[in-house]
Design a binder for these strands. Sequence first.
RNA 1: GCCCCCAUGGCUCAAUGGAUAGAGCACCGGUCUUCUAAACCGAUGGUUGCAGGUUCGAGUCCUGCUGGGGGCGCCA
Length: 586
Amino acid sequence: MFEKEQQQIEDQIRKICEAHNYPVKSLTWSWIPFSGNWGISTSFFQVAADDARSRGQKINVGLHAQEIAQMTADSLELPEGFERAEAVRGYLNLYFTTRIYSQRVIDTVLEEKDNFGRGQRNGERVMVEFSQPNTHKAFHVGHLRNVILGNAVGNILDFAGNDVIRANYLGDIGLHVIKWLWCYLKYHNGEKPEGDITRWMGDIYAEASRRHEEEPEAENEIRELFARWDRKDPEIVELWRVTRQWSLDGFDQIYKTLNVRFDKIYFESDVEDSGKEIVKELIAKGIAVDERPENAVVVKLDELCGTKDKYRSLVVLRSDGTSLYATKDLSLAIRKFEEFHLTRSIYVIDVRQTLYLQQIFKTLELMGYSWAKNCYHLAYEIVNLPGNVTMSSRDGTVVFLQDLIDEAKSRALAIVQEKNPSLTDAEKAEISEKVALGALKYSMLSRDNAKIVTFDWEAALDFNGQAAPYIQYAAVRANSILRKSENGLPDQTVLSYELTPVEVELIDLISRVPREIQRSAAECKPLFISNLAFDLAQAFNNFYHQCPVLQAEPPVRDYRLRLAAAARQTMINCLALLGIDSPEIM
RNA sequence: GCCCCCAUGGCUCAAUGGAUAGAGCACCGGUCUUCUAAACCGAUGGUUGCAGGUUCGAGUCCUGCUGGGGGCGCCA
């Protein structure tokens, strides 16, 4: 929020240093640690070390950096809004005039409201593909991380200034679907799903897997069904169409519950034929080798790239001519760029597919698509069960998403009941839903993408400590103060008292939000936002505890009311980026 | 065999190459007549897996090692 002033000072520092023959390569700005003092900081160690090297002298870099910092502090002309410059152990700390900047921060938040922290449009069009569930299968907790992460990254990229297209890619064909259809026709023909559709679909899939292994005749029957599918037997195609829709309706229920939406839906069945055409092209161009009928159609990437054991080989078509995941993914990638003229294409897919995606991107590059380098695999680690057991719908080692959500809601409801028994049932239901989903989402987003999540009922349902309910509660407390303010929110006020350290810290944190959003977008890490949201809530709780608002003298009261409103807005904005709703009361 | 990821208090995790490595759980002890105690305060707890290296400066970057997980031609 202080970029202009920062740039102005940076220019000055360069001039001052260069006048003394200290070339400045780059300056990095950071926050001053230790709350109570508010401002920005940079250091001169690099400048000092460079200087020593250029003169071939061995000196104490720390001391020299301090000299330069001191010299800079002495000759710097501070712009308005800065109170003092201080050289400390090689650092140059520039302290804000709290009166001016705290007001700027609070006014900006209250003026921009939901848009506080939003970046300038940068003209980049980014597709984020996420979720990618298979139809005719269950949706379990292992799938949750992908949806929550993809959704948050989509929100954050959009807010940071990109034009975001949220895409979903549904696995609506393949052996798993045929197996499902087989089981349905044989044991459930005519039945229709009720209630939790996805659960119902998943149960039949699990049953199909079990029967496939138990029943000797299953293999042949399934193969026969696959053949009917391949020759587009109208009865089978129709059944596929109808049952697929059930899955889609079920997914819609889930996405609605999670409050996730998509701009574009792709189906595997849509890119199968075009994928086969691309394989022909690959063969014609000499990129893929057709080894049929003995072997498959393969892109020997290491041979083509002159690498060894780096890209390995990518099989793009089965020896019997049927398509593979890769067949379709090549086609899909091209379609995305042609349809939307993307700047970037992000794939939110778990880390186990890293090599595979590198192969896809490399193959596209070999085909001559210059945009291939703008494809990015956003890899995240999977969610395991305790004991490092990976969830598998086949083995039945899954925690159903709906079960988790239901359990979370009922626990949240019990707590609302206890804390706030006078609320109406509708209010309690709304609060427990927001709290429960918030907690689940936050637990997925508050750890690094590269870290494995071990699912544990108690941990997933822990509403205490660093968790969404803590942040939601802080926002609710702010709300509560504002609601009780008789004259509503005061207009712009001038600071007429000495801010306490907790107030300064809170304002400081609020001011960091726009920059953290940019950083979070640049690295596709919602974690930065979830950390900051928690820090904000913690700072707000300190403020709440130490600084009376409604009881304070009018000038203090008015200022604090606006600060509380700004803090509330900022926390709500951060949670919204994570896909988490904030209740009004709880 | 080759490649990728992870390793930080008892547990789960943070930490733009930068100032004294921070939280949360758990445990112990305090705070409600005062804007909602889903909160706050205090105490305990660290040679950042090991060994080198780069750097003025390394939890962070590089190399090697150990331990754990994952991936490597017809699954998705």
